[in-house]
Amino acid sequence: MLKRIGFTRNDLILVAALLVFAAFGAWRGVNIGVSSAVAEKVIIRVNGEVLTELPLDEDRELGVTGYDGGFNVVTITNREVYIREADCPDLLCVKHAPASERGELIVCLPHRIAVELE
């Protein structure tokens, strides 16, 4: 079936090599314990520098001014954190699912804001 749509043996080798590379990374990621641990605090960084640390079990909302004057609203509620609002055009950070596990990271690329759980 794959042959009929023009998928060749070399294509298959490329995909297999990429999958092995991906599997290696996923396996190492699990080994260093990225997820499924309870997070306690929220670290907000702007342009690589820590702006503030907040406890995850306290509901609150914080306006963050990022690089280039961009503005984001970080919301902590029910032990989850998400970016409620941003004035960037792509809004990828707002589309990000709420984070609650240790090691999760929400970033706003245009404003260089990183919200990390620890």
Partner: peptide, 9 residues
């Protein structure tokens, strides 16, 4: 070495 689909991948 690759087909159009491989190139796109």
């Amino acid at each position: 070495k690759l087909s159009l689909i491989g190139v796109s991948i």
